[in-house]
Design a binder for these strands. Structure first.
Length: 285
DNA sequence: AACTACTCCTGGAGGC
DNA sequence: TGCCTCCAGGAGTAGT
């Protein structure tokens, strides 16, 4: 599932390819995946000036004063195909990045002046695409519903403590999945962060010392930095890929904890599969 | 404040 | 091989 690291690594790869390119053609194959307020035809003729990311949203700023926004949902994927058939890929790995395109799950196709073609696909259609005037990007992504960016200077231990202390009785897992706490975490990286901080998903901020909250803050930063710089978590069919450096607990039920060797346990929290090492993180309920 | 339930969607896995 | 059922979950909203 594309979380912050998946979207950010995709953005960086894409940025190198598309900035400065003009959109020669835009084909919306699945109208239900798109909301304006501007029509898709407004893309044609615009040049890409830059890319940004906020939380799990990928923002593409255009020369005509508009911005194209992608949210990849659970299974969104972007493939940029070059004329020599080389592909720059990111997002959900299914269908295989090598699949012929477009296919029936392809929803938007952008053809550039240099004959590169960008395909946005999503087998579950939980993702979405918007085209809006650049000053109105945050009407689509309301800032007051997003917490701080994890890799920004605003994400300090003090700020994180303040946010958590305001929600003393919320369980850590749903709290961290809430985008208004911290922007960009999803099910996988929440499990990884809690494991790294040796905290249990059902603990609450009210039960934590300042030192423990700082430990969680540090762990979130480390996990996200590691994923963005050294490679994102690899999961196929809900299992961690053998030998991958991430995830370390998510999708590893029954396998030894990398820290202590005890078997990783899976249970449900707010309907989400949750993985813990009970030796390192404790047992609740 | 904190929680649950519900909605969107469909490929893939497992049972028989 | 094939039919059926369940599971995966980001984010928004509504209801308790």
């Amino acid at each position: 599932m594309p979380e912050l690291p998946e979207v950010e690594t995709l953005r960086r790869k894409l940025d190198r390819e598309v900035v400065g390119q003009a959109i020669a053609r835009a084909d919306l194959l699945t109208p239900s995946m798109f909301d304006g307020p501007c029509p898709v035809t407004d893309l044609v003729g615009a040049t890409i000036e830059g890319t940004r990311r906020r939380a799990k949203y990928l923002i593409v700023d255009l020369s005509n004063g508009l911005s194209l926004i992608f949210h990849l949902g659970l299974a969104g994927q972007i493939v940029l195909e070059k004329p020599d058939a080389q592909r720059v890929v990111g997002g959900h790995p299914i269908p295989r990045y090598s699949a012929p395109l477009p296919h029936k799950q392809t929803h938007l196709v952008l053809t550039f002046g240099n004959d590169d073609v960008l395909f946005m696909t999503d087998i579950r259609k939980f993702g979405h695409i918007w085209l809006t005037p650049t000053p109105k990007v945050y009407d689509i992504i309301p800032d007051e519903r997003r917490g701080p960016e994890i890799q920004s200077a605003a994400f300090t231990p003090e700020e994180f403590r303040r946010i958590l202390r305001a929600r003393p009785r919320a369980k850590l897992k749903p709290l961290l999945l809430d985008q208004s706490t911290v922007a960009g975490l999803g099910n996988i990286y929440v499990d990884e962060s809690l494991w790294g901080a040796r905290l249990h998903p059902l603990q609450t901020p009210g039960q934590l010392t300042d030192e423990e909250i700082d430990r969680l803050h540090r762990s979130i930063r480390e996990v996200i930095d590691l994923a963005v710089e050294k490679g994102v978590a690899e999961i196929v069919n809900n299992r961690a890929v053998e030998g991958s450096h991430l995830p370390r607990v998510h999708g590893r039920e029954g396998l030894p904890c990398p820290h202590c060797g005890s078997p990783i346990v899976r249970f449900r929290v707010v309907g989400r599969s949750t993985y813990v090492c009970e030796q390192c993180q404790g047992v609740r309920e």
